[in-house]
Design a protein around this nucleic acid. Structure first.
Lengths: 264, 264
DNA sequence: GTGCCGCCTGACGTCGCGTCAGGTGCAAGC
DNA sequence: GCTTGCACCTGACGCGACGTCAGGCGGCAC
């Protein structure tokens, strides 16, 4: 990018017509200098975003100094993820347009981040619920997915089963055990966050496995139930759904660690 | 969604041909029940994702029970943001395919989140640098954008000016003042984070304004310099770039607050 | 003259549909 | 039997930012 100067020495870029002294770039040189493709510059030309001021008699595009300056601005705005049409409006319009275009882009980016955060939650939950369970059958998969998609937290069947388990002898002790283990894991994760540990670190990955084991135990090994638990966390928020065990910060970190772990 | 049962009572959905007892849905009913459009179901048919098993003599599509079950699975996977082609592969293939498709989707989502976080940083930085400064000229805009795009932190000109300012009398005091104010603002933001305050809250918005004022003061009001500061934060990370004043968590919160503030 | 590289234009494909346009099926009211 | 109106059909274009041919021309080295 910083080497974007006219290639006068080689003579390649200078149109040796009437205006010997005017600097101009051929499309290939400009593409190489900016890292764009020739096709992209063709495209910019076609849509009127960057129409080169000169052509050779043979019809070859020649980009002048002012064209290159405009291209600079285009690339800067493109780096912000702005649509080319908005870039054209901004460059041809006034500052007012520019401000609103940037704001529109910002709110769009913000929405994208939010929706993808939810997607990530659902994806990690699904992997959690199925792929590490013993022999995940198609039916279990479907149930897990449906649990994720459903609007309410738990199905009547799940509630009935939960009630039965609730009445089993020793249940309160097991429940207290889950809380204790969860709190421990969260505390260790928080320590890693404060220490700046990478989520891919083996110690963190081990913590994710311990976390999964606790949840799986709570769900009695049923993927659909595990999905429901994660769906509940997503909808109610980590603090409410886990009654204070999990914080938003740790939950985000945990998911990043999951994502890394599954990626390998 | 939960009301997805064949509309037998009205008789609308039953093909009264040879198989009176077979339940089937017409495309409009199915669309209404699932919240999809008829066009989307046409599309699924066209690409082979969901081809209804029956047609009336007139060529109208009739979706059977098994078609509806398949549609359920399709929608569940679509909720995960998966491309339709991958959905088809997953449903027609084995569990292995499914697992890798989910993992691929997860890593894709993770990348999207990361890139959009960077975009958000650049956008807020640009708004910070230009739109609240006094009369942001086109040249200032361009400079601010270039500062954001450039690979190195500060331009030689900026470094020279910084050195001059460094030697001014009273500079160490002003510098200490910026640090103190920054630390205060960060502490208050952290309190809001812990308290679960919405980033749109007026108190938080006021803190963003105070933050901007400090940065603007540091940059001597020059948009390009402000951009460079934010670019530095993005590249080096908040902790390193601010030498411990700003944490990653507060930085994220601050940007969300910016996004909300500019959106209004 | 010939070969090669760079340039040109035009057109199709991507992804997930939305949105017409033009035609048919089917039930109800006249 | 005829019209009205709604649901359905197929086919085609559009979006966004280009990638990827296909077919042909320009210019330079040998």
């Amino acid at each position: 990018m910083s080497g974007l100067v006219p290639d006068v020495a080689s003579g390649n870029s200078v149109y040796s017509g009437d205006h010997m002294d005017e600097q101009s770039w051929k499309i290939g040189d400009l593409a190489a200098a900016t890292g764009l493709t020739v096709r992209a510059l063709h495209h910019f030309d076609r849509i009127g975003l960057l129409v080169p001021m000169l052509r050779t008699p043979a019809g070859h595009r020649l980009y002048t100094d002012s064209d290159v300056r405009r291209l600079y601005r285009i690339l800067a705005l493109r780096q912000l993820g702005m649509p080319l049409a908005h870039i054209a409006d901004s460059l041809d319009g006034d500052l007012q347009d520019f401000g609103s275009a940037v704001r529109a882009q910002l709110s769009h980016v913000e929405r994208t981040i939010e929706t993808h955060r939810h997607l990530r939650t659902r994806l990690t939950a699904l992997l959690q619920a199925t792929l590490r369970a013993t022999e995940p059958s198609i039916d279990q998969l479907i149930q897990a997915m449906e649990a994720l998609v459903q609007a309410n937290d738990f199905t009547p069947k799940q509630l009935a089963q939960a009630k039965r388990r609730h009445l089993e002898p020793g249940f309160p002790d097991r429940f207290a055990g889950w809380r204790r283990q969860g709190t421990e894991i969260v505390a260790e994760l928080q320590a890693h966050i404060d220490g700046g540990t990478d989520p891919a670190d083996p110690a963190v990955q081990e913590l994710t496995r311990r976390w999964t084991a606790v949840i799986r135990d709570m769900a009695a090994g049923e993927p659909a139930m595990m999905s429901s638990i994660y769906a509940r966390i997503e909808r109610k928020g980590p603090e409410v759904a886990t009654r204070g065990v999990l914080t938003a910060q740790v939950w985000d970190y945990l998911q990043r660690a999951f994502a890394v772990g599954f990626g390998t």
